[in-house]
Each structure stands twice: as structure tokens, then as C-alpha cells.
Design a protein around this nucleic acid. Structure first.
Lengths: 136, 136
DNA sequence: TATTGTTATACTCTATAACTATA
DNA sequence: TATAGTTATAGAGTATAACAATA
């Protein structure tokens, strides 16, 4: 019984990736959670802050301050939903979209550097297996 | 630019694995950090608490309470090093070894269940790639 | 003077509860 | 009455500093 736990292997790889991402995000003046929020909003606005919190696995009360900061920097907007005046639609601004794409690009290049020498088909399979492991 | 970040994929897979491990560890009355300590000690004792802390990436001051608990349960011993009376050698007891192996076995079975249907050679390759990503 | 184990302290992150305004 | 956003508070987890014993 000497093979390492899969969980430990995954945890270490994750830690490594996050560590490599840190300086790239800092260069865009983004925290990890800020980047996660921008990632989620890049494809489409969030209906409510509550749904946004749920989708990214973040607490709705902590989300407030995070959005305050991002809105203050002009990276996103909170628009009151005309259909439900309690709710706010959260959407990226053009600046936010650009900032996200810059961070994303830097991260993508870092990932390719880490996987240098690995066949494209193997990377695809790796992604498949990771997605499969994530599925509940 | 629609492919998901590798870091995000890894983070989700890790979260899933740790979530699945939780009840298995609880059944052995072990916390995640306790299991990590036992894992490290299973192969050989630690020279000092400081080196143990460094090896598992845990704070040396927090390690104290954790070891106190494990020692109280009789899962490990702290023996003063005859060569350096400041240091304490940390080693598993037979009970600790057994407890570790029980947890390890349950986790191994859970991992196999999650990877059910995946070819053995692919699992080997997955482990290789994860180890490669972890290496500094 | 430096290091090991330890304790105490401060800080960050996270979760919970309570409040308001709308529905 | 229930829900969205917000604020305040409490808790867990983590990091930092200081201390006694030994090197």
C-alpha cells in the first residue's frame, strides 16, 4: 500500500496551479475570488447576486464587499432588475471584460508552459477525467 | 476563449475528493490534518516536529495541539531524541498504523469507485500528469 | 547566538443571524 | 410570508511573536 492518495495528488497540483496564478492575477490587480467572479460574468450577466454567489460557491454576504470593490474599479455594474426591484443584475463593463481576458490569457500561457511536452490528446483526456471526478 | 481554466478544474476535482473523504475519515474519528499526519508517519517516523510540520505544509505551532490529540488517543508517540534533547521524534503506534490503514483502505475504495470505467493505463497517466503539475 | 517545542496573540477567512425593502 | 441585498457579529482557521530549554 504505497501509492499516494488521489486526493493528495489533486490537492498538490491545485496548490501549485493557484500559486502560479497568484502573480499573474496580482499583475491585473485581481484577487482569486475577483477573478472567479469575472470568469462567471464573462459569458453572461448574473440574474441576482444570490444566484451569482450560489454559482461560484461564495457566501452571499461576503460577495457584497467583493462586488463593491469591483464596481468601484469600474469592472462591473449592478443594475436594478426592472421586473423585481429587490434584485440586482450583475454585469461586466467593457473594462471588466478586458481585464478578465488579460488575466485569462496570462493564465492560459502559464498552463501551457506547465504542460509543455504533453500531447494535446492527453491534455484533452486529463480535462475529461478531471471534469468526471468533479461531477456529483 | 471558452475552455475552462485548468486551475478551476483541478480545484473542483479536489473539492469533490475531499468531500468524499470526509465521512470516511470521520468513521475513523480522524480530521483531514490528522490523516495527513498519519500518512506522513506511516512510512517512517519524523525526526522532529519542525520537520514534520515542514513536510506536510502545516504550521509548527498549530501542529502541537494536533499531536496532543493524536498522542492522547494513543495513535502516535513523541519520543525525546537522545542525540538532541530539544527535539522529539514522532512515530506511529501500532494502533495509529492500523487506524491509518483502515482509513487509507476506505479512501482507496472510494477513489476506485469514482474512477470506475476508466482504463488502468489512463489512471496511471492521470497520476503521472498530476505529479508533474505538482513539481516545482 | 541559533534552534526546538511551546504558548499567547493577532489576523484572515468564513459562516450565521438580523435588518430593510420589496414581493 | 418569503426573498434579495445588506450589515454586524461570531467562529474557525491561520500566521506571527515571544518564551524556556537546549544546542
Amino acid at each position: 500500500m504505497s501509492e499516494e492518495d488521489l486526493g493528495a495528488l489533486l490537492a498538490r497540483a491545485t496548490r501549485r496551479l493557484l500559486k502560479e496564478e497568484q502573480p499573474l492575477l496580482a499583475a491585473q490587480e485581481l484577487s482569486m475570488w475577483a477573478y472567479i467572479v469575472l470568469s462567471r460574468l464573462a459569458s453572461s450577466p448574473a440574474e441576482t447576486q444570490l444566484s451569482l454567489a450560489g454559482e461560484i460557491g461564495y457566501d452571499k454576504s461576503r460577495l457584497i464587499g467583493l462586488l463593491d470593490g469591483l464596481e468601484g474599479e469600474g469592472l462591473l455594474r449592478r443594475e436594478p432588475d426592472p421586473a423585481d426591484r429587490r434584485a440586482k443584475i450583475v454585469a461586466l463593463t467593457a473594462l471588466g471584460q478586458a481585464r478578465y481576458e488579460a488575466a485569462r490569457l496570462a493564465i492560459r500561457e502559464m498552463e501551457m508552459r506547465l504542460l509543455d511536452g504533453v500531447e494535446e490528446t492527453e491534455i484533452v483526456r486529463l480535462r475529461q477525467l478531471l471534469a468526471g471526478l468533479s461531477a456529483e
